[in-house]
Every structure is written in structure tokens, then in C-alpha cells.
Design a binder for these strands. Structure first.
Lengths: 136, 136
DNA sequence: CAGCATCCCCGCAGATACTG
DNA sequence: CAGTATCTGCGGGGATGCTG
């Protein structure tokens, strides 16, 4: 199986991930938003259905509202998450994935599923690694 | 397109990403190793071919040797990267992907390619977002 | 060449308090 | 309820110097 199976022609198709000097290239930043600690969880959760703010907070678990807000704003700005604030009292804000966001979320979800499926092999590898280190 | 296309049955198939309280669940950690700043770059680079240490360092660009060493050790311990140290002088160490690592790398590469392909839409979304904010 | 050890900084994340 | 604003710490990560 070659790289081409991953979606694009060759490895070099991901051009200049490694910008010398200067600032990091923009793609890297988007990737980091998407794969960030809370970004991953938000995207996966929203894949199921739209969520309200504090509903999302409870669903994800241990996330401060500051970080959730920050994550949602970043993803919204990147056009991955849609924010729907209804002008009612008390306030009600629904978050959902955009089409773009759904594409990202599905990829992230695939990766997350992979880690879960292969966890056994990872744990085995760690035992081997740690055992080898220990007997030195 | 539904979630099932992503590889597993339902979104809830990714069980307990959000462990309440206690420590983070192990899958999360593996995912963070793989999607970490330098982990992403290392995996993508090794997808092309095996690399020597400082060759990899040059290829990736702006990475300190500390972080490269740390990243490689983490990925090696997780069984994603194979380290081949030849007992010669001067030392020569080759790094390559294991079968497990190649699976991960292809997923990461797909995600990286996606961000690059969709960068235009992300930039457009940002303009809209920033413009809307500015005129408040 | 391929690391390891140490020092040090500043930036992200958590905690807290307040608002529309 | 859904945020904003402000303070603070602590640890990730860079820089430097040293070894086999």
C-alpha cells in the first residue's frame, strides 16, 4: 500500500510543512486547531449532533469553559463549526459542524478510532520497550 | 455521508474519550503523540523513506534536537517507529516506520493533505468571520 | 554523529470573579 | 445560560554545554 492511498499523489504533495525560518505555514495551524486537545473532542462530539454550549461542556467532561469557548471560537473562525445564537432569555447557543467541519471531524474520528483499535498493540510495544530498557 | 464511512459503526464507538475525573484515558495519549507538533512531521517524513537522525532534523527544519529525540522516543515506545542503531563510529541511527506506524502516518498524512486542500476555504471563512467582528 | 543533562523562560491552561 | 476579564502557576520547549 502506497501513500497514494491516503488521498493525494505523493508525500511531497504536502508541500513545505517545514517552512525554514519565518512563521509556521498556515496549514500547520489549521491542523493544530483540529488536532488540539479539545478540538478533537469537540469535533467528534458534534459529529453525533448539534450541541448547546453547556451541554457540550458536560458531554466532553473535564473542560474549563474558557478552553471550550476558545476552542469553539477558533473552529468557528476556521469555518469548521457553526454558531447559532438565538436571541432569547436565557441565552441559547447551538453549535454544529459545517460541511467543511464534518470533513475534518470524520478524518479526526477515523484517527481516534484507529488509536482505540490499535491500543492493544501499542501497549504491547510499550511493554517490550520498557522491558528492554529495564534490563540494561 | 455518515459516520460509518469513517471506519467504525457509530460515534459512540469511540468510547469514553472523556473519562470523568482521574487520568486521561490511554487512547487520548496515543492520539496526542501522533498529532503532536513534531509527531505529525516525523510520521509524514518517514512515510517517504527511512531517515537518519540529523537527516531527519534537516528535513523537518526548525526542530531542536531535544524535541526530535523526545518525539522519536515516544513514537518508538508506542511501537510506531523503529530505531536501528548501527554499532559503528561515527554512530549511525536509522529511523523508519513500523507497520503500525505506517497506518498512523497514512491517517495523519490524509488529514494533513486535507488541511492543505481546504486551506482556501478556511481562509475565506476567516475573512468573513473577521469582517463580521470588525463592524460591530 | 547521536544523543543526554541542565537551566530558564514565557505562554497556555486552570481558577476565580463578573456581565448581558 | 453563555460568555468575558484578569491573575497566576507550571511545564513544554528552546538554548547551551557535555559525552561515547
Amino acid at each position: 500500500m502506497a501513500v497514494s492511498d491516503a488521498g493525494v499523489s505523493t508525500p511531497t504533495a504536502v508541500s513545505k510543512w517545514n517552512l525554514e525560518g519565518e512563521a509556521m505555514c498556515p496549514h500547520r495551524l489549521v491542523l493544530e486547531h483540529v488536532t488540539s486537545r479539545w478540538g478533537v473532542l469537540v469535533l467528534i462530539q458534534l459529529l453525533e449532533r448539534p450541541y448547546r454550549f453547556s451541554e457540550l461542556r458536560r458531554a466532553i467532561g473535564r473542560v474549563s469553559e474558557k478552553m471550550l469557548t476558545q476552542t469553539l471560537q477558533t473552529l468557528e473562525r476556521d469555518g469548521l463549526v457553526h454558531r447559532d445564537a438565538k436571541p432569547v432569555i436565557p441565552p441559547r447557543v447551538d453549535y454544529s459542524l459545517t460541511d467543511l467541519g464534518r470533513e475534518a471531524a470524520e478524518q479526526v474520528y477515523a484517527l481516534a478510532s484507529w488509536t482505540e483499535q490499535r491500543m492493544g498493540e501499542v501497549l504491547k510495544a510499550r511493554e517490550v520497550y520498557d522491558a528492554a530498557k529495564a534490563q540494561l
